[in-house]
Design a binder for these strands. Sequence first.
DNA 1: TTATTAAATGCGACTTAGTTGCATTTAATT
DNA 2: AATTAAATGCAACTAAGTCGCATTTAATAA
Lengths: 118, 118
Amino acid sequence: MIKEKGLSYTQAREELINLLLHASTPLSYDNIKNSLSMDKATFYRNTALFEAAEIISSFESNDKKRYYFIEQNLHPHFICTNCNSIECLKEDIIYALDGYKIESITIKGLCPECQKEN
Amino acid sequence: MIKEKGLSYTQAREELINLLLHASTPLSYDNIKNSLSMDKATFYRNTALFEAAEIISSFESNDKKRYYFIEQNLHPHFICTNCNSIECLKEDIIYALDGYKIESITIKGLCPECQKEN
DNA sequence: TTATTAAATGCGACTTAGTTGCATTTAATT
DNA sequence: AATTAAATGCAACTAAGTCGCATTTAATAA
Ligand SMILES: [Mn+2]
Ligand SMILES: [Mn+2]
Ligand SMILES: [Zn+2]
Ligand SMILES: [Zn+2]
């Protein structure tokens, strides 16, 4: 995966790709900093590189943090503006936007839990 | 609009609502700071208040800035990850997410301009 | 209209996710 | 094994947004 894109294969990059491959939702630096052996600067330099190489995607959540993910099938992510939880929405929503290339879709609002509380 | 929600009607709030009402795309503080007579703290305190009162919505773009908008019909916004431009996507896309309340939808990717350059 | 008061504002200090420069280490190639 | 350009760690930095507090203003009562 890394080598296919002509990038050199380092310990840090392997570690980062593995974490993202096995995650069930997008992850921020903050989420995984304790599982990472690399420095924060290395994390961000590599995520930027992987995004440019189109190995990973990301979005900015409500909590001012960026979340990174690797996913085979394009699906929207739901972000709760109350509790900041992030969910994968597996229901297929087809976006045919002529001339645009779609990298990620985020839907913000209130999750079922938070809506009840109102 | 402001009074309907039981908020007091101040010069700063009128100014802010007017700017957002007449904007053709979502706006960040940076976009309009030169047109604003209020302080940055007041801008952010009022946007937070308006969001809580459900007068405005917002999303975090790719450039780490938050964009605010008032819109009658719910439609997605497209954010180009290359040039950071923001567009309203008027084509109606119906999201029926049972149990969720949807406040905003953002689609990220490459706009037609930036995709050509590749 | 004026007096009262709680809420709104401006200002400066602060927070914090992410970035950058530079010295050191490491992966890739010879 | 030697070479070298790229990758990394560290510490300093940047900038969007937040917060405390003194001052001003909107709303209400007199
Ligand atoms: Mn997902
Ligand atoms: Mn719009
Ligand atoms: Zn929630
Ligand atoms: Zn673009």
